[in-house]
Design a protein around this nucleic acid. Structure first.
Lengths: 147, 147
DNA sequence: TTTGCTGCAAATGCTTTGCATGTAG
DNA sequence: CTACATGCAAAGCATTTGCAGCAAA
């Protein structure tokens, strides 16, 4: 299936890469996984894949444009499958849930600002942090991520 | 002078803290320093202050609201003296220069988005990365910071 | 077969911490 | 004098890398 994507990226189609791709695809709700998250998921699936490989594969995927790496405030990097559409993020400080959004107005004004300051923008990152109002969000003060 | 700020923050007025505060204040152009930057500046001033202390002091300053910690893409954290006014950042990928800006339109739309998604925003971070067009900016591919 | 991939363990780089000493209040 | 600060060295954590063995094409 998505072995094609790997080929196109100049990467051999191997089990670790397919598995990791699969995990990134299947995580519908919280599609923003750290290397550790993915590693643990692999262990749970009885896959014998090392953490170093997870990092290597994710780095390669990033270089190939398959995934994007984000640095949220907690330090640990999270990876997200690229679906072509650009979007920004809003992170719940209580439950760690991540929502995505696009606001064309924000995008426009960003470009205007960049132009005014004489910058040729190559990339940008907008992340808002706050408290969501979902019923299942535990307001425990400290964030507890991964489901 | 700013010993007051320290007192108000519940921190004893010590040489390391004053010196670090001073360094953060005096860096007019590139006011976004990493712990290492500050440490080296201290060494250059023949101050005998350990790197661990720099980190401890900066962390305390952050907790006290005196400085803000930013995580730009290169991983290393940078610290900026808080001057009350909120602003976002645009970073040059070539020379590492950081410009600050505020766009009320962006702020407004951010709030609108947050409200629409049911989030109570506590904080946000908008950073743009690009190439500036300054004469003294070396387009050397890799970023070379500190003056 | 040949090149590239993997696992493991060791190394890295930034940041934090334990502990004995020093110093502000 | 007492509590908090500091310096140093060692620890911690996420991430990267070296290397010998393995697997895809």
């Amino acid at each position: 299936m998505e072995g094609k994507d790997l080929r196109k990226a100049g990467l051999k189609v191997t089990l670790p890469r397919l598995k990791i791709l699969e995990i990134l695809e299947s995580s519908d709700t919280a599609r923003h996984l750290s290397a550790e998250d993915i590693y643990r998921t692999l262990l749970d699936s009885n896959e014998d894949i090392g953490l170093a490989t997870v990092y290597r594969v994710l780095t390669q995927f990033e270089a190939a444009g398959l995934v994007t790496r984000h640095h949220f405030e907690d330090g640990m990097a999270v990876f997200e499958l690229n679906q072509g559409t650009h979007h920004d993020h809003i992170v719940c400080l209580d439950c760690g849930r991540v929502e995505e959004f696009v606001d064309s107005g924000i995008e426009e004004r960003q470009n205007a600002v960049a132009q005014r300051l004489g910058f040729a923008i190559r990339d940008h990152s907008l992340i808002m942090y706050g408290h969501c109002r979902r019923a299942d969000c535990p307001h425990r003060g400290k964030s507890n991520k991964n489901s």
